[in-house]
Design a protein around this nucleic acid. Sequence first.
RNA 1: GCUCCGAUAGCUCAGCCUGGUAGAGCGUUACAUUGGUAAUGUAAAGGUCGUGGGUUCAGAUCCCGCUCGGAGCUCCA
Length: 620
Amino acid sequence: MRILQLHCDSIEYMPTKKEIQSAEEIEPKKIRIEEVIVCFTAVEKDDDSKIAKNAISEIQESMKKVGCDKLLLYPYAHLSSTLASPGTGLKILKEMEESCTGINVMRAPFGWTKTFSIKVKGHPLAESSKVFSNDQPKDQSKEKTSTALESESKIKSYWYVLTPDGKMEEVEKFNFSNHKQLEVLAKYESAKKRHVDEPPPHVNLMKKLAIADYEPASDSGNMRFYPNGRLIKSQIEQYVTDKIRDYGGVEVETPIMYDSHHPSMESYFNRFPARQYSIDSEGKHLFLRFAACFGQFLMASDFQLSYKNLPYKLYELTRYSFRREQSGELVGLRRLRAFTMPDCHAFCKDMQQAIDEFRKRFDLSREVLSGLGIEENDYEVGIRFTEDFYNENKELINEMVSKVGKPVLVEMWKEKFFYFVLKWEFNFVDNLGKASALSTDQIDVENAQRYNITFTNEKNEQQNPIILHNSPSGAVERVIYALLEKFAKQAKEGKRPQFPLWLAPTQVRLIPLKDDFLEFTSKLAEKLTEQNVRVDIDDRNDTINKRIRDAEKEWISYVLVIGEKEVNSPSLSVRDRATGDVRQLSIEDFIKEIKDTTNGKPISKLNSAILLSQRPQIMV
RNA sequence: GCUCCGAUAGCUCAGCCUGGUAGAGCGUUACAUUGGUAAUGUAAAGGUCGUGGGUUCAGAUCCCGCUCGGAGCUCCA
């Protein structure tokens, strides 16, 4: 229980509005009291009757000293962040009121927003604050917080905005009027307040498009992916993997759980700011990985590395990485407790090589996002570094900002606090003004030593490499979230959103006008399937209009009605979702158009029955 | 994590304030209908009203706990 006790000439308050549903039933009227001790009181989680009595006896004692016999108990939540439930709060306050003896006690109503004006006396004992709690403090929960989590809140950083022409301006002084999204990232001015409680638009879309959904039988933040979602996710995974292999990444696979008492693990475990899942098994205390670092570092430390092998790039797509994020932060696909993370580490012989590699990965990440349909004006860039690193590498950082071509947010640390000296990330800003990181890269100068990763240098000595940690796309689930949020925004602007063709679960839908044309339609479907086009057939007994409407609701790019006309002519009637118009195309031209649009992207077969009549309805 | 809000048919929701027979649209199934680019017609099936307790002659409805979801957390008694 926390109390702010004030000896006042007068206080005047007026209940204006019920703050919570369980607010006390009272007649709201203005109250004025003269010559009174006002106790602003916050009832906290573990408070009980004993604490209430202690508090009152201490308050009464101090009232004797100042010679005042009027007490006002004033519920005041803002004193504490670990409040009791409203029911308990009210009960305890009532107990305090009742246990007063020989004084005139009053209580301001609970659960109401109140205006108040107050005149506090000027003597030394007029103001005091008090904290009451049970003797044995409950510290067990705190013990487990990693040191990184605790010290992260203490770390001192300086915020700037760096412009493409190389000007670094303090964030408070920067004019954000043409850079609203960056402003959201800088949290300099919080996003517009929403009057209606509404989930972010992608949550509705992920269900309507039968992509993903919550799984109540698992832990929060562990999603189920329906056939459509699995196909989209699989395509993104394959695309990012292809791009990283092209860049030179070597793909490996490592375990998802580790022994937290393994010597290499203990210090990193405490240093990384994440809350982890743990599993006890046969006397071992295991934890689920929150990144691919563990497996790759343990693997690399067993390799015989020469400077001639460097830079050496290990890559893994984690399905899954686990982080036990605070439950209040989990919404839809934005932030999860189990997620799929492409993670590419580069082991470099020295800082110069690390910086050269860093440049390549910056370009790679921009290219990957663009290939996924997330363009430069969809994200804002944050760059973080130590002051020393900046002074020695101004050119590199200015070069990155000029590539981005717009101002970026900068965080500078006076000294190295984390294991890295430079880090950047691309942040997607969504429809509700929330920023989330997608791609990122870091220059790590610590972990090689921690994991005993060494290479033999030119002088035949053992040396620790510098390690880069890059995810060119960010979590795959978060990429889907960003795409869906982007589509929702387009829909709001009256556009017709659709997935890039290579990501669409169905690329072409065929609708036979009546059963007589089903055979011709099936043959056409076969031809398209041979050309790696994902095509399905709506053979359900519904009207043409109805089936077209359903195809549009599924955001299918191409819809072909097959009837008399098509059977008797070489051309197809292709309805294009982008325009809503019907075009006449030969089958060759149609296939060419699809191939041109999906060129360079992974290929995947249809992930559902080809006939719609054979599919269960997943989402309406 | 904390505070508040919500949970009724597969989906979206009404009913709850003021306790007394479980509702609609979409979807599903059956039958009719064989159509030319965003909703064909008729009928039927489908719900221990999230879960556990309490108050009551009687609870979807009122009260309390729990689970799951949402919003806010610089704003909250």
